[in-house]
């Protein structure tokens, strides 16, 4: 495959009890699978959106790709290089081409440094200190629409939107090939969200970046992604080109998630699909199809048999015994 980033069967496990405690309480498996066998690829210049409820493993995927949490198994290939198991020293070299933006715009900026220092931090880290740092700071700040005066300020003197722009500038400093944006619009008001998204889209056009965007805001996904994946309990339940998924969801969870998104038009007919119950605990995964406890279309087979991944010819993939389109066709 010619994808820039390829993730195969990625699994991330977190320990929930110390070995001693696990032994004492007779716990067989003191781990949870925060990410459980995920496959995806991102081509150059493409934007992939990861969507899902809180705790579904979106951010964990991002952190595993960045090497911030170790992957238990599977492979992450970036630009032809295997990242899983790469020693930190070599990984740091890859981090020039791989940038990440974090959820909290102000909290992800080191509080005692000036904005100038913050945006030029990547140069210093990667030993590119010979560049004219003042010039670089000015260039980067202008690229994200901030005046050079901001360089003298401190993070706590910025608004959320300005801090987010600084985050974008910092991510772009080393001309990365892939940007991972974890909730780039969280905590910003709607107009600023729009500005940030348009900024990202513009920079992607100009610089040919690939973007992996993590969000639970479906409007954001629809606005800027080419493809999207819906996560539930650490697995992809559906994965495909964004417009297709929006128009024609195949998995009941996708349908429920999409219908929960508020329509701006008050007269639009609301056809909300309600799902009941809570997200099951990762400690105690349901048998069969993991969504069967909440699925409105649940059948007997779902309770016992895990559905396989179904691929169709449009690049869609989903895991459901009774995908939505088929059922309607049969009726």
């Amino acid at each position: 495959m010619s994808d820039l980033l390829t993730v195969r069967d990625l699994r991330v496990r977190f320990r929930v009890a110390s070995p001693v405690k696990a032994l004492m309480t007779g716990m067989k498996d003191p781990f949870i699978d925060a990410v459980c066998g995920v496959d995806f690829g991102i081509a150059e210049g493409e934007t992939l959106g990861l969507v899902g409820e809180s705790g579904s493993g979106k951010s964990t995927i991002a952190r595993a790709v960045m090497g911030l949490v170790p992957a238990a198994s599977g492979s992450v290939t970036f630009d032809g290089q295997q990242l899983v198991g790469l020693p930190n020293r070599q990984f740091n070299r890859v981090r020039r081409d791989l940038a990440m933006m974090f959820q909290d715009p102000v909290g992800s900026l080191s509080p005692r440094l000036t904005i100038r220092s913050l945006v030029t931090e990547p140069f210093r880290i990667h030993g590119a200190g010979d560049r004219e740092l003042d010039q670089e700071a000015k260039r980067l700040l202008e690229m994200v629409g901030l005046s050079a005066d901001f360089g003298r300020r401190f993070p706590h003197q910025l608004s959320g939107g300005q801090a987010r722009r600084v985050g974008v500038a910092r991510a772009l400093a080393m001309d990365p090939k892939l940007i991972i944006a974890d909730e780039p619009t969280a905590g910003l008001d709607v107009s600023v969200q729009g500005e940030v998204l348009n900024l990202l889209a513009r920079l992607q056009r100009e610089l040919g970046l690939s973007i992996l965007i993590i969000t639970h805001n479906l409007n954001v996904v629809r606005h800027i992604t080419d493809r999207m994946a819906i996560m539930y309990l650490g697995r992809f339940v559906e994965h495909g080109p964004t417009e297709q998924v929006f128009h024609h969801p195949r998995h009941p969870y996708t349908e429920a998630l999409l219908s929960a998104n508020p329509e701006p038009d008050p007269d639009a007919a609301s056809s909300r699909v309600e799902i009941s119950g809570e997200v099951p605990s990762l400690m105690n995964r349901p048998t069969g199809c993991e969504f069967h406890t909440r699925c409105p279309y649940v059948g007997d087979r779902c309770r016992h048999e895990a559905p396989p991944v179904t691929q169709d010819d449009h690049g869609r993939a989903f895991t459901c015994h009774y995908p939505l389109g088929d059922r309607q066709a049969a009726e």
Binding site: L68, R95, A99, Q103, G107, P111, P122, I125
Partner: peptide
């Protein structure tokens, strides 16, 4: 585990740099 420290790690900063520039002043 503050986000700005995780962000530094994501940028590839080494431990001496994180401690000296980002933790120490605080």
């Amino acid at each position: 585990n503050n986000e700005f420290i995780v962000a530094e790690r994501a940028m590839g900063a080494g431990t001496p740099r994180i401690l000296g520039v980002h933790v120490l002043p605080n």
